[in-house]
Amino acid sequence: MKTYYDPEDLKKFGKIGEFQKPLADKFFDYYGEVFAEGALTAREKSLIALAVSHTVQCPYCIDAYTVDTLEKGCTEAEMMEAVHVAAAIRGGASLVHGVQMMNKVKELSM
């Protein structure tokens, strides 16, 4: 193993069951159902997945859901806006903790 991440490994995801089949089968069944058309369209779910991929910073997921959103007919603008949603939530999550800091400052200050 020369690198931790290899794009070729993405193709092997389906073989994860080689070491533990029943759980892998359950996971992939669940995964398939999650992404099927439902109350949300498959297209909307794909954009959510793209945003989450950037939040968890998973290169496999970013690769897979960039292709998937393109194949769902999404525009580059929609895809980037989804990434901005992830960035805004991540940034906001840090910033909102500033309230804790402010609370503590006020607790300690005269």
């Binding site: 498959a42 297209r43 194949e71 769902k72």
Partner: peptide, 11 residues
């Protein structure tokens, strides 16, 4: 580009 088409109905 080098990808597959979306579902015809969705498009």
């Amino acid at each position: 580009g080098a990808f597959m088409p979306a579902s015809q109905e969705t498009l």
